[in-house]
Design a protein around this nucleic acid. Sequence first.
DNA 1: TATGAAATAACACGGGC
DNA 2: GCCCGTGTTATTTCATA
Lengths: 145, 145
Amino acid sequence: MIEIDDIDHRLLRLLREDGRRTFSEMAGTIGLSVAAVKRRVDRLREGGVITGFSVQVDYAKLGWGIEAFIEVRYSGATPASEMIRTSSAVPEIQAVFTIAGDPDALIHVRVRDLDHLQTVIDGLRRTGQVTGTKTLMILGSWVRR
Amino acid sequence: MIEIDDIDHRLLRLLREDGRRTFSEMAGTIGLSVAAVKRRVDRLREGGVITGFSVQVDYAKLGWGIEAFIEVRYSGATPASEMIRTSSAVPEIQAVFTIAGDPDALIHVRVRDLDHLQTVIDGLRRTGQVTGTKTLMILGSWVRR
DNA sequence: TATGAAATAACACGGGC
DNA sequence: GCCCGTGTTATTTCATA
């Protein structure tokens, strides 16, 4: 298990706020040399704490303005790996969470409009493994940065 | 409304895969000059399509190994803005989705253990605005990269 | 309106301490 | 953990279609 100290936490916080911060900027903020900061970030990556960097996109501006969660129930024989495997092939599906209990999975989808949403839900049900769905339409959201 | 062409979509895809890709690397991939790539990314930021950059963290390695969604019902008078305002102050809460229908909100939490989860749920109920919760424990997850 | 080329300033990276 | 030298990148300016 990789050891994480307070400086590492501060670095992670800075990179969560802006993943493109430069090492020298973070070095100045934290009060460390650039090399030390780079070494720590490299270590966090190698230790698997940092799994990658990504851009945050406003999908509504790309015309994908509708978001929903779909609670899905699968037939008894369906393993969680199968839920994820089939879902990840659907481009509208952004995330899949397998759940203990009822429902079996919570699927986060992003679509252009309600017709499009209907198509996605129909596609899920057509796999034969899905025995029921309940869709939660997202009206607004807040995500910690 | 900002116009997005095919090259912009390719840039967004590259940055989704790795938010720290250099302009020169993307320029080489796409077949454009570094300056052109930088101008496009700057434009996407100013147009609000790109809202930021962030690091992806494996929170389990930080000791926050338990994730759950909490379906929350609020008393009738509670506006969505209030649901988000109170939740965002709770550090364990990672995201809040206000929902059309039942439940009123879906809250994504990350905690150290089940005792910790209980504390967070108790905290929600103690606000007086929450009339009911149903917790969906996350066993596994997949997020599109 | 979008591009490429070129120059400079800032940064990343590696080695040595 | 720091400092320093080298190569790379970011950023700005200018010229062009």
